[in-house]
Amino acid sequence: MAMTLSLTDEQDHALTALAEAQKISKQEAAVRAIEDAASRRAETRDAVLRRIVSEDSELLDLLAK
Rank of each mutant, 00 (worst) to 15 (best):
M1T: 12
M1K: 14
A2G: 11
M3S: 13
M3E: 15
M3Y: 15
T4E: 14
T4Y: 10
T4N: 14
T4A: 15
L5Y: 09
S6G: 13
S6D: 14
S6P: 11
L7A: 15
L7W: 13
T8I: 12
D9C: 13
D9M: 11
D9K: 09
E10L: 06
E10R: 07
Q11I: 11
D12A: 10
H13Q: 12
H13R: 09
A14R: 07
A14F: 02
L15H: 00
A17L: 13
A17G: 03
A17M: 10
A19W: 04
A19P: 06
A19K: 13
Q22L: 05
K26W: 03
K26P: 07
Q27G: 13
Q27Y: 06
E28P: 04
A29Q: 08
A29L: 04
A30D: 09
A30F: 12
R32F: 07
I34L: 11
E35A: 01
D36C: 04
D36F: 02
A37D: 07
A37M: 11
A37N: 11
A38G: 07
S39L: 07
S39D: 07
S39C: 10
R40N: 08
R41G: 01
R41A: 10
A42Y: 09
E43H: 06
E43P: 04
T44A: 11
T44Y: 08
A47T: 02
A47R: 01
R50I: 12
R51W: 09
R51E: 13
I52R: 02
V53Y: 07
S54I: 06
S54C: 13
E55D: 09
D56T: 00
D56R: 00
S57H: 14
L59C: 01
L60S: 09
L60W: 02
D61L: 10
D61E: 12
L62K: 04
L62I: 03
A64G: 02
